[in-house]
Amino acid sequence: MGIYEVLAQSRQATDAFFVQYNSMGRPILDVLHNIFEGAFNILLAVAFALSLAYIIMSISVLLQHWHT
């Protein structure tokens, strides 16, 4: 078997993989992507709320410190 035949076969296998990936794997990955992105946004919102609480506390304490 020549090198060109090996390359052609591997290319066929790769094409077949991507056909399967597009028809079956990608929809699953899209669902997973939406789940992770949603979880990320929820965590970001909670982290932002907590972060804001610390900023408010810090500014309040700082203002009191300057005031006194």
Binding site: L29, F36, E37, L43, A47, L50
Partner: peptide, 27 residues
Amino acid sequence: LVCSGYLMTILLAGLFITGALSIVTHR
């Protein structure tokens, strides 16, 4: 609020993990 001080580290770890997985599973 006082007891939630350590919650931030959990959130940051969660953000790192879900963010990385979100990138990996992106089109």
